[in-house]
C-alpha cells in the first residue's frame, strides 16, 4: 500500500550504494550518514506535526543558525564565570531549548492568534533570524572558545555502546514522536485540524492551542538539533542551516505526510530523511555522475519516491 513507496526507494538506494562501493555499509559510513541526518531528522519530526495540522514553517533553518549563534555567544560570555565544565554546557543547552521554544511560540502566536498565513509569518521570521545571526557574527563566523569546544565535542562525536549521541537523540525523538502521532490524543487532534478545521472545532478540539503547540514543539526540536550541531564544528555563521527548512519539508512529504495536512507519519519522515542524506553520501562515494548534476539526481529521486507512493495508493 502507500507505505511501500519510500521504503522501496530507500532499499534501492542501499542496494545501489553497496554495489557501487564496498565501504557503503561499513559501520563508520553508516554512523556518518545517520549522525549527519540527525539535525534535519530531529527538525523534520517536529515539522511532521506542523504539516499534519495544516501548517508550515519555513523559518527552521534560519532559526537553527540564530540559536546556534546565540548559544555560542552565551557560552563564551559565561566562560570566565563558570569555567569549563558540565554547568556551562547545561547553560548552553538550556539557552538553546528556551530560545527554540520562544521562537516557536512567537511563530505560533502570529499564526493562530493573529490569524496570519503560516507561509507569510515564517517567511518573515526566516529573514529575521538569518539577518540576526549575520549581525551577531558581524558578517563573519561565531566560534566557540577552543577549550570549551574540546570539552563539548563528545556530544556530537562521542556516544553510548558505540552509537553516537546524535543518533541516540534522533532515535528517541522519533519514538516519542511516533507514539504522540499514532497513539496519543495530540496526534489525532493535529490530523483532525489538518483535514477539516471547522469540524475539529465543533468536535471540541482547541484548534488554536493545538496549532500553537505544534509550532512550540518544532521550535524546541530546532533547539535540540542545535545542541547536537554546535559541538561538531563549534561555529555558526550566516551560511549555517541554509535550506534546512526545504530539506525537512521534503523529507516529511517523501515520508507520506500530506502537504495539505490531515495525515502524518513520523516513521515515514525518518525514511525521507535517510533517503535524502543517503543520496548525498552515495554521490560522494562514487564518480558516476558529474558533481554538477548532484542536485538533479536528488530532485529525480525525490519526485520518484512520491510517485511510487501515489501508484501504490491507487492500487491499494
Amino acid at each position: 500500500m502507500s507505505v511501500l513507496g519510500p521504503v522501496i526507494a530507500l532499499l534501492v538506494l542501499i542496494v545501489v550504494g553497496t554495489a557501487l562501493n564496498s565501504n557503503f555499509l561499513s559501520a563508520a559510513n553508516i554512523t556518518n550518514v545517520l549522525a549527519r541526518s540527525a539535525f534535519i531528522g530531529i527538525i523534520a519530526v517536529g515539522m511532521t506535526f506542523v504539516i499534519t495540522a495544516g501548517g508550515l514553517d519555513l523559518s527552521v533553518g534560519s532559526m537553527a543558525a540564530f540559536i546556534a549563534g546565540l548559544m555560542i555567544l552565551v557560552m563564551n560570555a559565561a566562560l570566565p564565570v563558570l569555567g569549563i565544565g558540565i554547568p556551562i554546557i547545561l547553560l548552553g543547552m538550556a539557552v538553546a531549548l528556551l530560545a527554540g521554544i520562544a521562537a516557536g511560540l512567537l511563530n505560533g502566536f502570529l499564526i493562530t492568534t493573529l490569524g496570519i498565513e503560516a507561509f507569510i509569518v515564517t517567511l518573515g521570521s526566516m529573514g529575521i533570524y538569518r539577518s540576526l545571526v549575520t549581525w551577531l557574527a558581524d558578517g563573519g563566523t561565531l566560534s566557540l572558545d577552543f577549550g570549551l569546544r574540546t570539552f563539548y565535542r563528545p556530544v556530537y562525536f562521542g556516544g553510548l555502546f558505540g552509537i553516537s549521541w546524535p543518533i541516540i537523540v534522533f532515535a528517541l525523538t522519533v519514538i516519542v514522536g511516533e507514539v504522540m502521532m499514532s497513539r496519543a490524543r495530540f496526534g489525532r487532534h493535529c490530523a483532525a485540524i489538518g483535514s477539516n478545521e471547522s469540524v475539529a472545532h465543533y468536535s471540541n478540539v482547541n484548534v488554536n492551542r493545538t496549532r500553537l503547540m505544534t509550532y512550540a514543539m518544532l521550535g524546541m526540536l530546532v533547539g535540540v538539533a542545535t545542541i547536537m550541531y554546535v559541538p561538531r564544528l563549534g561555529s555558526a555563521s550566516a551560511s549555517t542551516g541554509v535550506l534546512w527548512e526545504l530539506e525537512a519539508i521534503a523529507a516529511v512529504i517523501i515520508g507520506g505526510t500530506i502537504l495539505k495536512g490531515g495525515f502524518g507519519r513520523v516513521w515515514g519522515t525518518v525514511i525521507g530523511v535517510l533517503i535524502l542524506s543517503m543520496i548525498d553520501n552515495i554521490l560522494n562515494l562514487t564518480d558516476l555522475v558529474s558533481p554538477y548534476l548532484n542536485g538533479a539526481i536528488q530532485g529525480v529521486i525525490i519526485i520518484l519516491a512520491v510517485i511510487l507512493q501515489r501508484e501504490a495508493k491507487a492500487k491499494g
Binding site: 556518518n32 553520501n281 560522494n284
Partner: peptide
C-alpha cells in the same frame, strides 16, 4: 583522486570529507 563541491561551506565540506575518508 577525487573532487567534489563543498560550496565554500563548513558543513558541506565536513560531509564531503567524511565521505572521501570512507572511500
Amino acid at each position: 583522486i577525487d573532487m567534489e563541491h563543498g560550496n565554500w561551506n563548513r558543513d558541506d565540506s565536513f560531509n564531503v570529507m567524511q565521505d572521501f575518508l570512507s572511500k
